[in-house]
Design a protein around this nucleic acid. Sequence first.
DNA 1: GAGTTAGTTAAGCGAGTACTTGACTATTGA
DNA 2: TCAATAGTCAAGTACTCGCTTAACTAACTC
Lengths: 119, 119
Amino acid sequence: MPKYDGSLDRVFQALADETRREMVARLVRGPASVSELARPLTMSLPAVMQHLQVLETCGLVRSEKAGRVRTCHIEPDALRAAEGWIVAQRTAWERRLDRLGDYLAEQPGITEDTEEGTT
Amino acid sequence: MPKYDGSLDRVFQALADETRREMVARLVRGPASVSELARPLTMSLPAVMQHLQVLETCGLVRSEKAGRVRTCHIEPDALRAAEGWIVAQRTAWERRLDRLGDYLAEQPGITEDTEEGTT
DNA sequence: GAGTTAGTTAAGCGAGTACTTGACTATTGA
DNA sequence: TCAATAGTCAAGTACTCGCTTAACTAACTC
């Protein structure tokens, strides 16, 4: 049982929190310890730890402990997975728009978004 | 630091649910009525309505009612906002990797990921 | 070896989610 | 006009989230 999960559910859920987005925005500029991550945040250390745990569980962040300090890095693959899903949807939508445009161009006098509707 | 407004919270939160992702994946291929959206799903209609409401609140979906049927469309801007945030992070990370690569190339004999650490 | 620093664990709490069922309102078509 | 269709509203429930405080452990520092 690996600690990360990588499911899109969890990745998006992780990104749905401003604090956690700030944490990844910080880690994207380089590794940081837990207290470095906590410093700009207005909450208790245990709260930060919990956010960190969410980020680790979904695979966005990895960390290891050396001595008494735990150093955290981002793990860009999880980010790419989320990006990939969104891009797939957006491009599907754009392709459809193109097809619709082509179709309308062939139909003189039509301006409205006349839709099909799959039933 | 919170450069992007709070609606990113809502968009990511909306995408953090498989059912809702299926709904946007369906709408990306063209408009659909509420019951069309509900048909492949294994839950009650009111539940689907609640998901739809989440999608509308965060701006991912728009809908209007004609007669007794409500037709839903995706609204790609919200999708692009989420994509934009992720892309910004990923590219920041890649830029940093490049700089690190350049730096290491100038330091003969270094192979390890020797980090700074913003203490 | 005493105190400080860095992190961890556990319990608890209020708010929010993801559903459900049941009752109800329009619209449409025979 | 009446029944079926399409959607809506309200309330209830079980579960999860984001946070807190308090108590604790494991390095380092002096």
